[in-house]
Amino acid sequence: MSEGAACFLCGRPLGRRVEWHHPVPKSRGGRETVPVHPICHRIIHRTLSNRELERSHSTAAALRQHPDIQRFLVWIADKEPDFHAPTRRARR
């Protein structure tokens, strides 16, 4: 990971722990991966199904438009790159 790399979802600098997210899920034929914070990766998968990710949320811009992810992004914005906390499953 290069110095100054940013998280695909929140745009904050990446910390020591980096996970790799498939914008189009691997189970749906996705091959590309992008770097994300572990907490950002958790919120993506706890908020959206693989079908939703494939059909309408495969870009960072589309993910950021989801109301639950918008709330998360406001909350996480001032946290350190290696900040981690439990994430809860979104209510459906």
Rank of each mutant, 00 (worst) to 15 (best):
V18P: 03
F8L: 08
R88V: 07
R17H: 15
I76P: 00
V74E: 14
T33L: 12
H41I: 02
R91G: 03
R16E: 12
A60F: 07
V74S: 11
L53C: 08
G15T: 03
W20I: 11
G30L: 09
T33A: 12
T33V: 15
H45P: 03
C7Y: 02
P81A: 08
G30C: 11
T87I: 01
A77F: 08
A6M: 14
A85P: 06
Q70L: 09
G30M: 11
P13S: 04
H22T: 08
E3W: 09
R31L: 15
F72G: 00
R55F: 11
K26C: 09
E3G: 11
S2P: 13
A5V: 11
A6Q: 15
L14S: 02
G29P: 01
D68E: 13
A5T: 11
V36W: 10
P38A: 07
R71N: 08
H22M: 04
E3R: 08
S56A: 13
F83P: 01
M1F: 12
V24S: 12
R89D: 00
R92Q: 13
R51M: 06
I43L: 10
P25F: 01
R88C: 04
I39H: 05
A77M: 09
L73N: 00
I69K: 00
I69S: 00
A6V: 15
H45V: 02
M1W: 10
K79T: 07
H66E: 09
Q70P: 06
P81Q: 02
S2N: 14
T59N: 03
L73I: 00
H57D: 00
R89W: 02
D82K: 04
P25W: 01
G11F: 07
R89C: 04
A60Y: 03
D68A: 15
E80R: 12
A60N: 06
P23K: 05
I76W: 01
N50R: 09
V24G: 07
K26M: 12
T87P: 00
E52C: 06
M1T: 13
S2C: 13
C10E: 01
A60P: 03
P38G: 04
R88L: 10
A85E: 14
V34R: 04
R42D: 11
L63D: 00
T47S: 05
C40W: 00
C40T: 01
A77P: 05
R31F: 14
Q70T: 09
D78I: 12
W75E: 14
E54F: 15
P38M: 04
A6I: 15
A61E: 13
R64N: 04
H45C: 02
L48S: 01
D68V: 12
H21I: 09
S58E: 13
R89S: 04
A60E: 04
G4Y: 05
I44N: 02
H21T: 08
R31H: 12
L73Y: 01
R42K: 12
A90D: 09
